[in-house]
């Protein structure tokens, strides 16, 4: 049997990915179908009860809560990120790569440190309180840290660069003549934006939104540090099952749920991109 050269070149990396990603992920998925042992550990008896537990009202509440926090963060990040990407795409061509580089730079620095920076800002004696004092505020320092708002701010801050990057790509490729044509035909600036620019840049928005939502809902660092452990995301729940509650099968079912959410959103995103690409050919315009 002979193996072609490309296959031979790919072999070591593929073996690594299969051995240390595919097999472990399959294993964790399999764990979700077993019972938890009496003293922790895994009892190899088939059961679906871990998945039933995921939709149990107690945990479903945490799911909904983290979906709400992640959803809010996603919405804010998309609005700010799109506006920023639009502003960058409207600058001089020569300036755009520089602006983009500096918009994305924080994203490549340490996630923990970027989150920590918000503890420093929102702390009782942090910069925000000091600014308020400077403006003549004399009351008790406002409690901003360990709130849902702090968690959302942290998530938006951490993932905003990616949204800017994702939205910039379609915006920079946008043909300016399309917008001009719309205006020439009497479309207002808002109509042009809503009917031309927004649909054509939807793939970028969808990619950015899916990314922020998936990483937010599975996050455990930001809720732990900025929420003071009072706000649980699915990520925190998974963390607890594996490191404190010692219920690995249930943690595995939660991880499987995270993957399912991610897959579902990626499908939706794929659908949004397809729709946009069919729309970009101006075949039909209803109304």
């Amino acid at each position: 049997m002979t193996t072609s050269r490309p296959t031979l070149l790919m072999m070591p990396a593929l073996a690594w990915l299969i051995g240390l990603m595919v097999v472990p992920c399959g294993l964790v998925l399999a764990l979700a179908f077993f019972q938890r042992g009496i003293y922790g550990g895994v009892d190899y008896t088939f059961t679906l009860e871990n998945f039933a537990k995921v939709v149990d009202p107690l945990y479903a509440g945490i799911f909904l809560n983290s979906a709400r926090i992640a959803g809010t963060a996603t919405l804010i990040a998309v609005v700010i990120g799109y506006a920023a990407a639009y502003a960058i795409a409207s600058c001089r061509r020569s300036l755009q790569p520089v602006l983009l580089f500096f918009a994305v730079l924080p994203f490549w620095s340490n996630y923990l440190i970027r989150t920590y920076a918000w503890i420093v800002l929102l702390n009782r004696e942090g910069l925000v309180t000091q600014m308020l004092r400077w403006f003549g505020y004399t009351g008790e320092p406002p409690s901003m840290l360990y709130t849902e708002g702090a968690v959302i701010a942290g998530l938006v801050y951490n993932y905003l660069p990616f949204v800017i990057l994702a939205c910039y790509a379609p915006l920079s490729r946008l043909n300016p003549e399309l917008a001009e044509a719309s205006r020439d035909l009497g479309g207002s600036a808002f109509t042009t934006f809503r009917r031309i620019i927004l649909p054509l840049t939807m793939p970028g928005i969808a990619a950015g939104a899916v990314f922020v939502f998936v990483l937010s809902i599975g996050n455990f660092v930001t809720p732990a540090l900025l929420g003071g452990g009072r706000f649980q995301m699915i990520g925190n729940l998974v963390y607890d099952q594996f490191l404190t509650a010692n219920d690995w099968p249930f943690g595995a079912a939660l991880a499987a749920a995270l993957i399912a959410i991610m897959m579902l959103l990626l499908l939706v995103q794929g659908y949004a991109s397809d729709r946009a690409s069919t729309r970009s050919a101006p075949v039909r315009e209803d109304a």
Binding site: L20, P24, L31, G218, W248
Partner: peptide, 12 residues
């Protein structure tokens, strides 16, 4: 998601 790969490798 990092957390998924993390728990998968821990189990493995």
């Amino acid at each position: 998601p990092d957390i998924v790969l993390a728990v998968a490798l821990l189990s493995f």
